[in-house]
């Protein structure tokens, strides 16, 4: 295993940057917490409100996709730490593909909902909320995929190992967060369907 020396100030900086990501995730979580409380307040406002439909099966498949991708990104991170660069590249690419798959699975689920008449522009805004939750989450997924691509590009360009591991560390953390966020949203919607 290769050891690289870093001066202390640089180490503090990396620690602080990782901390920034944690804070950012708290901010993102607050945004979804606000949407959840908005949903609850809205839905409690009348008997004619509520999701009033069974969530499409596609959401189960997308959940599987994102859980598997969480495993692959973790394996990619472990590979990066052990300097198994080919394995890291492969697993990263798989994670990105799973992420893209998740994206399209969600879009497909929208199609299923729309076909059922559960549309975005709806006088029962509880149903519109399904699109807002998943849409805002997808916006974050796009950002997450960009972070993954950036880690992959860094690996291909052969950046120093410290930076490679650091990028992977942040990418893995963020990607796990997006997975948890989706599970939270899905469970929240399931409990309210």
């Amino acid at each position: 295993m290769a050891k690289y020396t870093q001066d202390k100030e640089e180490l503090t900086q990396q620690k602080a940057k990782k901390f920034n990501l944690w804070l950012g995730m708290i901010g993102m979580f607050m945004m979804f917490a606000a949407l959840s409380s908005g949903f609850i307040v809205y839905t409690a406002g009348g008997i004619d409100r509520g999701i009033k439909t069974i969530l499409p099966e596609a959401f189960v498949y997308s959940t599987i996709l994102i859980v598997v991708s969480s495993v692959t990104i973790q394996l990619a991170y472990n590979a990066a730490r052990r300097t198994l660069f080919d394995k890291q590249k492969l697993l990263l690419a798989v994670t990105i593909l799973l992420g893209v798959g998740f994206f399209f699975m969600q879009v497909y689920a929208w199609g299923v909902l729309t076909a059922r008449g559960v549309v975005f522009v709806n006088s029962n805004a509880s149903q519109s909320f399904i699109y807002v939750f998943t849409g805002m989450h997808l916006a974050h997924i796009i950002a997450g995929i960009l972070v993954l691509v950036r880690a992959l590009v860094g690996r291909i360009r052969n950046i120093p190992q410290v930076n490679n591991v650091f990028r992977m560390d942040l990418a893995a953390l963020f990607w796990h967060f997006l997975g948890f966020l989706w599970i939270y949203i899905y469970v929240f919607l399931l409990l309210n369907q």
Binding site: K17, N20, G24, A143, R167
Partner: peptide
């Protein structure tokens, strides 16, 4: 929001230049 994650990783390149 997404900018946070990007910026968080982006700026790695910039800290070596004191």
């Amino acid at each position: 929001m997404s900018t946070i994650a990007n910026a968080g990783t982006h700026s790695v390149d910039h800290h070596g230049d004191h």
